[in-house]
């Protein structure tokens, strides 16, 4: 968590420094948007088969929010920055519970999941903009750090508290790449709306923190490294500075 705050602070200070540099040199312009919307995921990350060790039990759609900005270095070209988060709930947990029931040969199991998958991204890259009066359309390709935080899982075997085991909240990093197209429409000189569609891909390597796994039995993950990408559509307010 401390790491995330440090990265956010770094991003904010970088953005502010860029603006200050821009002002000092009196050239280039900055836009900054706050967006939210829908995002998808696919592949093993969304599968729900107990015997598939790569299955992530993530929902196929989730929420995304992002701070999107661009600092123009020429009329059309800007350095784009995205600080974004994607949230996916878990799904299909019954198969997980049934699988542990069978694998430990017990009378009952209870699986409790707390929290969502949270994918945070810190991306930078070129943005090319086509100004069309009040409307401007841009395409960008961004790359950077992508982190994945897993939910916490608790598995109770029958009513024996000593047998309860946990898969604690775990995080991992990887390279994230985002490419997409967006349109900004300005109602006034400074304020407008932005609509964008982006494809995102990342494969963070999460080291899973397990607790109280006394015996080698049942589904067991000590790492999770699967593609968590998808397509996202988002809408929000944009400011030209």
């Amino acid at each position: 968590m401390k790491n995330i705050f440090l990265k956010i602070a770094l991003f904010i200070s970088t953005t502010i420094s860029c603006v200050q540099l821009n002002a000092q040199q009196e050239r280039g312009k900055l836009f900054i948007s706050i967006l939210g919307g829908y995002t998808t995921a696919s592949g093993n990350f969304t599968k729900t088969e107990y015997t598939n060790i790569a299955a992530g039990y993530a929902a196929k759609s989730g929420l995304n929010i992002q701070l999107h900005s661009g600092l123009f270095v020429s009329k059309n070209l800007a350095i784009g920055l995205v600080l974004g988060s994607r949230f996916f709930q878990t799904t299909g947990l019954q198969s997980l519970s049934d699988g542990y029931l069978d694998d430990f040969d017990v009378d009952s199991t209870t699986v409790t999941l707390s929290g969502d998958y949270i994918n945070m991204n810190y991306l930078v890259g070129p943005t090319y903009t086509f100004p069309l009066g009040k409307l401007s359309v841009d395409v960008h390709v961004l790359a950077g750090l992508s982190t994945l935080r897993t939910p916490e899982m608790r598995v109770d075997l029958e009513d024996n508290a000593a047998a309860t085991f946990y898969q604690r909240v775990s995080t991992g990093n990887g390279l994230g790449i985002q490419a997409g197209v967006g349109a900004r429409y300005f109602f006034s000189e400074k304020v407008g709306v932005e609509l964008r569609v982006d494809y995102f891909t990342a494969t963070p390597n999460v080291i899973i923190q397990n607790e109280n796994r006394t015996n080698n039995a049942g589904r067991f993950l000590n790492t999770y490294k699967q593609q968590i990408g998808g397509i996202g559509a988002s809408l929000g307010i944009s400011l030209a500075l």
């Binding site: 956010i8 706050i34 939210g36 019954q94």
Partner: peptide, 23 residues
């Protein structure tokens, strides 16, 4: 704006949803 994003993240992450299934 950065604060709004940060607060939104913390709010969503902080909504610690819990789901439980029993076999």
């Amino acid at each position: 704006l950065a604060s709004i994003i940060l607060i939104s993240n913390l709010f969503i992450a902080g909504c610690k949803k819990e789901e439980q299934v029993v076999s």
